[in-house]
Design a protein around this nucleic acid. Structure first.
Ligand SMILES: NC(=O)c1ccc[n+]([C@@H]2O[C@H](COP(=O)([O-])OP(=O)(O)OC[C@H]3O[C@@H](n4cnc5c(N)ncnc54)[C@H](O)[C@@H]3O)[C@@H](O)[C@H]2O)c1
Ligand SMILES: NC(=O)c1ccc[n+]([C@@H]2O[C@H](COP(=O)([O-])OP(=O)(O)OC[C@H]3O[C@@H](n4cnc5c(N)ncnc54)[C@H](O)[C@@H]3O)[C@@H](O)[C@H]2O)c1
Lengths: 218, 218
DNA sequence: CGCTTACTGTGAAAAGATTAACAGCGTTAA
DNA sequence: TTAACGCTGTTAATCTTTTCACAGTAAGCG
């Protein structure tokens, strides 16, 4: 269970993509094997990159036949922690929060979105997309009964840091933040600040300064 | 107008964050100057990183007083292309598409979301959040009249690649894709595949394998 | 069986991104 | 006017990530 040290964020993200790709291949294709260059091509990466990633999680294939799909799927799932149930909570049931609720509820039974919170009395004390919505004042109480490890923040920027602190105090050790502020957390908590505005402005930038010059995406 | 070669994606994203930070500082603070270490601290970065980024876009400050806020704001805006109007279109008016419409409409007058498309007849031929919604069959026709450089894809995975091709044929040179497939485009088009599932699974991974081991976020 | 082929696993090289370190300078204070 | 200070701009060092390149290996084939 003790993971080896220092697997990079990039690698974990790619494993997540491989896993979903394999899931779909496993369900639709009857070929039980797959080569690194096939995975690579489907994910827009190089074969060397794929082999290195699989090496990092300690998975081995066979030369001349490649990787066994079912085995690799199992291995990637186990690496990502799908072997035991993980619980998540979401704070901020606005447009974005609702989209995420809709999408992530019941997508994976071991990845349970079990509570949502909002400050607006009109949005709580009901069930949206199957998830119970509570007043944000009850955050600590509710999380105490649920063993939640991961939080999603979709509140306005000025409330985000406070919500993060409350989540951490409630025992959350990983946060995905969509508010456009850089949230600070203790060193033993993982924070991903996902800034959609930056992402869009980046695309617009390269859409402009790019159309004439070549470049293959990373 | 010819930008110098090879500014990294990471740098562009950070410039976007600096720009919004400066906008807010410019509006609220009466100090016309700011130091690299102040920007750094507010963005969760090192001062050296900030100075390097500003050097990259060719902006100079004064020793002993730092950077002039208004000037830097102007310079970052101009770098990102806010000097002339940029037009965007969105395809897929589902939960996520609607959240993005709501958020990006009228956020910046030079960054115009001017059309949305969907295959569902029940969702088109009306105005949502101020944006006109068209049947996806009219995509090429409508974009031809609008000079759109940037597209946002929020359709289901199996439709995403086709939509991308249509956008490219309609003259779009940058695409932000939320569907969980790796979209391929010609080399002169910029594509950003933003996979929210990977982001969330990454957070969950580190939330688990992390709480006991230190680590300072990138 | 042994030869051919096309793959994997992986050190080593290359490329890319961040951080350190410091010379040089403008400002302020004396 | 000069000295001290604390900043910027930038080069060099470091750290990280990706790619190259090839030895080793299993399968297919004659
Ligand atoms: N929607 C997007 O496409 C988009 C894009 C970029 C960034 N964001 C960011 O994501 C966040 C959410 O965006 P949105 O469009 O869903 O906003 P929204 O205004 O629709 O939703 C925010 C929700 O948070 C709730 N809220 C406010 N203060 C709260 C508090 N202290 N505790 C609990 N709940 C609270 C509000 O009641 C509301 O339901 C914002 O920070 C926004 O800047 C969103
Ligand atoms: N909502 C999320 O939080 C979330 C998270 C991760 C990934 N995604 C991805 O983002 C995309 C959109 O997610 P969503 O939750 O908004 O889905 P959704 O089902 O709510 O919306 C999809 C929309 O696309 C439209 N559509 C379908 N085929 C089309 C076509 N060929 N042309 C034009 N429009 C078409 C549908 O009518 C619908 O309105 C999906 O690919 C999903 O996998 C969403």
């Amino acid at each position: 269970m003790a993971a080896q040290r220092k697997i990079s964020e990039r690698t974990v993200e790619r494993i997540s993509r491989y896993r979903r790709l394999l899931e779909s291949i496993h369900a639709t294709s009857d070929n039980p094997f797959i080569y690194s260059h096939e995975i690579a091509s489907l994910c827009g990466l190089t074969a060397a990159q794929v082999r290195r990633d699989l090496m990092t999680i300690g998975f081995s294939g066979s030369s001349a036949r490649g990787y066994e799909v079912a085995e690799l799927l199992r291995s990637a799932s186990s690496f990502l922690g799908f072997s035991h149930e993980r619980r998540m909570a979401l704070v901020g049931i606005g447009y974005l929060g609702r989209a995420l609720l809709d999408y992530f509820v019941d997508r994976n039974p071991l990845f349970k979105l079990c509570a949502a919170f909002d400050a607006d009395p009109g949005k709580v004390d009901r069930v949206i997309h199957g998830v119970r919505c509570y007043p944000v004042t009850q955050l600590k109480t509710v999380l105490a009964t649920h063993q939640v490890s991961t939080g999603i923040i979709t509140v306005p920027a000025d409330a985000a840091q406070n919500i993060a602190w409350e989540l951490v105090e409630a025992g959350v050790t990983g946060i995905l933040n969509f508010a456009p502020v850089q949230i600070r957390v203790p060193a033993n908590v993982f924070i991903e600040n996902l800034d959609l505005t930056s992402a869009l402005e980046k695309v617009a930038y390269f859409a402009g300064n790019f159309s004439d010059k070549e470049r293959t995406k990373k």
